[in-house]
């Protein structure tokens, strides 16, 4: 049986390399009963469409980012809260444990079986004007964010001017001053060539959003238990490989942008940025009182 496997990232990207290993492992261990076939580069559609397709069983496996997942599974919006994780290790610890299981349960209700959690790094602000040391440095600067109310609030609370914009428009807009900056992880900052035009990268690590390897529930339920086990193990192994490759890729990208003359700076006082998020959190909890305990439990993970 062929399992169509969806990924937004292009061939050669850590996620896709790991998915290819996953496909190989599964095909071999099931002796061809299950043959995942990877369609990279989003050729089968963008993520919201791919999620619908997975829920309908048209694609069997998806490598989804939890950012846009919030529109479908509201609990995952928690993962889009700025500074919800202190660092990557914190995220790994939480998602690999009981917290991750709670997200899996929420996803499962929407027909999505999450098997393992990948990295998408931590996102920081970059801009064409100056190093950002304190929130005051963002004052009046136009930052592109993804279309999500939480990200808009985040930039607005920091004093910037949040500008939702299609990803493809960002390079030209940075170059010509339509916007002053954007935010992303090192690999995307590098592969999008935004570093050619935005010379200041300030490590705020404001968003650490995990990705999943997910299987359609309809497909999963029809898979015999022994094959389920094989698939789950392969997915966990693939996530480990991806985290490893991601870290390497991230370092390589960092080196490349530094060689290209990008000025990278640590922020003076990370807590000033975190404190500014207080209204974002309280508005979120006010709207989603049932998710407050989840937030507290994530923060409590040591």
């Amino acid at each position: 049986e062929t399992w169509r496997t969806w990924a937004i990232h292009p061939e050669g990207y850590p996620n896709v390399v790991a998915l290819e290993s996953f496909a190989e492992d599964v095909a071999e261990a099931t002796e061809g009963r299950i043959e995942p076939q990877v369609y990279p580069g989003g050729v089968l559609g963008a993520q919201p469409d791919a999620i619908e397709q997975l829920r309908a069983g048209a694609i069997a496996v998806g490598n989804f980012n939890m950012g846009p997942m919030g529109e479908i599974v509201p609990a995952t919006n928690v993962l889009s809260l700025p500074f919800i994780f202190r660092d990557i290790d914190h995220m790994h610890k939480a998602m690999d444990g009981e917290i991750g299981q709670r997200f899996s349960d929420a996803l499962s209700e929407a027909g999505i079986v999450a098997l393992s959690w990948m990295d998408s790094g931590s996102r920081s602000f970059y801009n064409t004007k100056k190093p950002i040391m304190t929130p005051a440095d963002m004052d009046g600067l136009k930052f592109r964010v993804m279309s999500n109310d939480l990200y808009v609030q985040m930039v607005d609370e920091l004093g910037g001017n949040a500008t939702p914009m299609a990803y493809g428009e960002v390079y030209q807009s940075l170059k010509t001053g339509v916007i002053d900056g954007a935010e992303n992880n090192y690999p995307s900052f590098e592969s999008s060539n935004h570093f050619e035009v935005a010379k200041y990268y300030s490590i705020t690590n404001h968003l650490i959003i995990p990705e999943c390897i997910c299987v359609a529930k309809s497909v999963w339920d029809e898979t015999p238990a022994e094959d389920q086990e094989i698939v789950r193990e392969a997915a966990i192994a693939a996530a480990e490989e991806q985290r490893q490759l991601w870290a390497e890729r991230s370092d390589a990208s960092k080196q490349e942008v530094m060689d290209a003359g990008v000025e990278i700076n640590e922020v003076e006082d990370a807590s000033a940025f975190q404190d500014a998020m207080e209204p974002v959190y309280s508005r979120f909890i006010e709207k989603n009182p049932d998710l407050e305990s989840l937030i507290r439990d994530i923060q409590a993970v040591k």
Binding site: K142, V152, N161, A162, T163, P164, M165, V178
Partner: peptide, 12 residues
């Protein structure tokens, strides 16, 4: 964006 420095976020 240019005059008010407050981009309407709903336009897109």
């Amino acid at each position: 964006r240019y005059v008010m420095n407050d981009t309407p976020t709903w336009v897109e």
